[in-house]
Design a binder for these strands. Structure first.
Length: 675
DNA sequence: TTTAACCCGATTTTT
DNA sequence: TCGGGTTAAA
């Protein structure tokens, strides 16, 4: 975190003290917005609000956890614990848990992750091609983010592909309802539906919060904005904190329309720009401002800082991706070699697309530089963890068919896909879940006795386990139950049977053990959370899944996409592959709309403003195409930074050429050195 | 006809 | 790295 001054600056103070009406804080990069949010929470408590009456909404679990941590430092643990700090999605879960029944959702519903959704879509659309199913998933999600249901989508469908997607969407929605399941988009749209339709619920929820703060407001989509409006109603004051210049998620439904509409929807809106930056040097901010000045503005805003100019922003022109990676690594080593106080973790290399990381990783490994790639595969995506999650989900909601299918076949227990297909057919005919079908007395019309016996045994075991999970509370108890369960189903043996290598099996098992420890810790509670039963932990699993991630405090270089870098900062940053086609990105023959270009420019702006002290912008003169190198065009954003106005561009080759020329000149006749 | 090896190309990501 | 698509061999 940048060195924050002891007091708030005037703009920050204004934002903190505007308590009574709607407020939009335009928080430029590095302008201390989290501080503002946290201080405002403290101010609201001081004004007499209860912690539970203050909601702070973020986009990621990580941001929510950080905010709670920061709040704790200022308002103390007791108050911080009761604050309603959560993501949009977990707030949605909370609303659906308490009032979902008013929409016909039973209390123990399942939340489908994107793999589950993909599976349902393949089935609903009768298509085994993952690419097709994924494009449906994508289209449907965007529709849902715009607040369209299947019928509205059918009307909005613009081409044949979209018409098909709309048909699939209808079938998909039917299946979700049958499974008593919701997807991530539903976690926003269903609570909105609840508030829109049900006056009693609306009144209750509008009375729940007396101030709502929304972080990263520029990332909200249409439905999230509607939910916010429904929650604040006519009277609840709120604070939206965001930066139109850092809106980089338009492609997944975020819309800066929400920023434009805010003053219209709330005429009393107080707009407060935070322009003082506490992160970067003057040279870095100047480059950032120059780039973003090319975009049309909704609100005027220009960052400045009290730090000096600092090092000039450097431009590196490289001969190939390989060369670029080598030079980035060399720069890191050189800086670190020159100053022992500089840590590996002071560096980040940022790029547009994940695959760019590959070659950089290779060079870092060669140079023995420790690194981490942000946004790598999550621990929770591993097959063994998903297996166990499927079991837990099944305990929470036996009607969760995807979870049922995974659990019933993991480990293998003599129930093959013949049996499951017949069971599925039977369940479909009677419109019940697989689990329900399994206990039906008429099942014997569809299946052989032996298969039924196996199914019954499985079903009874699940029921017994559910009973125990419901009553097992606390860390140690939870651990015991989980390990016993794993022995019961023979999971460790299953891992060893399935793997070709003992080593892999052992590492999978150790993941499983970690997972059990993780469950136990959550069941055990701590000063922030009460003890929970295993079943309660299980229900929240889909939502909290990204919390347990990496330990932050390793001394390693960070590799990250520009998107994943938003909100983070490093003393020394390298932007790699700043070329036309990549940044701004252009896919083949698609034309670049002004809106697209503007979002790419904001991405560049985000990249530049991650740097505190030094920034290197690296571009390729050639890049690999097939077997040969073809010419590459440096990004237009490089020109837009206007580096040469205040600083010289720095190309070692050119410098070398100049040096040679100077030496040659010196040798013949003494000349004034041009440095 | 089926399978395995290999090569190529790649938006961006959270819940 | 990862997955899809192509090609070569059985």
């Amino acid at each position: 975190m940048a060195e924050a001054p002891a007091t708030l600056n005037p703009a920050q103070l204004a934002a903190v003290h505007h308590l009574d009406g709607p407020c939009l804080v335009l928080a430029g990069a590095g302008s201390g917005k989290t501080r503002v949010i946290v201080h405002k929470i403290a101010r609201l408590l001081q004004a007499g609000l209860e912690p539970r009456q203050i909601a702070a909404i973020t986009f990621t679990n990580k941001a929510a956890a950080e905010m709670r941590e920061r709040a704790k430092q200022i308002v103390g643990g007791r108050a911080a614990k009761d604050l309603a700090i959560s993501t949009f999605h977990s707030l949605g879960v909370r609303m659906l848990k308490t009032d979902g029944s008013r929409l016909g959702l039973k209390e123990q519903f399942s939340i489908f992750d994107s793999d589950d959704v993909l599976g349902v879509l393949r089935e609903a659309g009768g298509c085994n091609d993952n690419a097709v199913a994924r494009s449906w998933q994508w289209t449907i999600s965007l529709w849902k983010n715009q607040g369209l249901d299947a019928e509205a989508a059918a009307r909005a469908a613009a081409d044949e592909d979209q018409r098909v997607a709309a048909v699939v969407m209808k079938r998909y929605e039917e299946r979700l309802a049958a499974f008593q399941a919701v997807d991530f988009d539903d976690l926003i749209s269903l609570p909105l539906k609840l508030l829109a339709r049900d006056a009693e619920a609306r009144e209750k929820w509008q009375g729940t919060f007396r101030h709502i703060l929304v972080d990263e407001y520029q990332d909200t989509n249409a439905v999230q904005y509607e939910l916010l409006k429904a929650l604040v109603g006519e009277h609840t004051p709120f604070t939206a904190v965001g930066d139109d210049d850092q809106s980089i998620y338009g492609w997944r439904g975020a819309t800066i329309e929400n920023l434009k509409r805010l003053p219209q929807d709330f005429p009393r809106l107080k707009v407060i720009p935070l322009e003082q930056n506490y992160r970067s040097t003057g040279n870095i901010l100047r480059a950032a401002n120059n780039v973003i000045a090319q975009n049309p503005k909704i609100y005027e805003k220009k960052l400045w800082s009290e730090f000096g100019d600092g090092e000039p922003v450097r431009l590196l022109e490289c001969d190939s991706e390989e060369h670029e990676a080598e030079r980035a690594v060399a720069r890191i080593q050189a800086l670190r070699g020159a100053d022992a106080r500089i840590a590996w973790s002071d560096f980040a290399i940022l790029y547009r697309a994940n695959h760019q990381a590959r070659i950089i990783e290779q060079k870092l490994r060669q140079a023995q530089v420790p690194y981490k790639v942000s946004g790598g595969q999550s621990w929770f995506d591993r097959a063994e963890i998903k297996d166990l999650c499927a079991w837990l989900r099944l305990l929470v909601n036996p009607d969760d068919d995807p979870a049922f299918l995974r659990a019933v076949t993991t480990p293998k227990r003599g129930i093959g896909h013949q049996t499951l297909a017949s069971l599925g057919e039977f369940a479909g005919k009677w419109k019940v879940s697989l689990f329900e079908a399994l206990f039906s007395p008429t099942l014997k019309t569809a299946l052989k006795g032996k298969a039924i016996d196996s199914l019954h045994e499985f079903g009874r075991y699940v029921n017994a386990l559910e009973e125990r999970a419901r009553h097992t509370r606390g860390g140690e108890e939870a651990r015991k139950l989980m390990l016993e369960f794993l022995t019961d189903i023979g999971y460790e043996r299953h891992l060893h049977d399935g793997e070709e290598s003992e080593k892999i099996a052992a590492s999978r098992w150790s993941n499983v053990v970690d997972f059990v420890g993780w469950i136990a810790r959550r069941a055990g509670g701590d000063e922030d959370r009460p003890e929970q039963t295993v079943l309660e932990v299980a229900q929240t699993i889909a939502v909290i899944i990204s919390l347990a991630e990496r330990s932050e405090d390793q001394d390693v270089v960070t590799l990250s996409t520009l998107h994943a870098s938003k909100g983070l900062e490093w003393p020394h940053v390298v932007l790699a592959g700043v070329n036309e086609g990549l940044l701004p990105f252009r896919a083949g023959d698609e034309e670049m709309t002004p809106e697209r270009l503007e979002e790419e420019r904001r991405l560049m702006y985000v990249g530049i403003t991650r740097a505190r002290r030094t920034l290197v912008v690296s571009t390729l003169r050639r890049r690999k195409k097939g077997r040969e190198l073809v010419a590459a065009v440096p990004s237009r954003f490089i020109t837009e930074m206007k580096l040469n106005e205040s600083t010289g561009r720095e190309d070692p080759r050119e410098r070398l050429a100049k040096l040679r020329a100077a030496l040659a000149a010196k040798a013949s006749a003494p000349a004034p050195s041009a440095d």
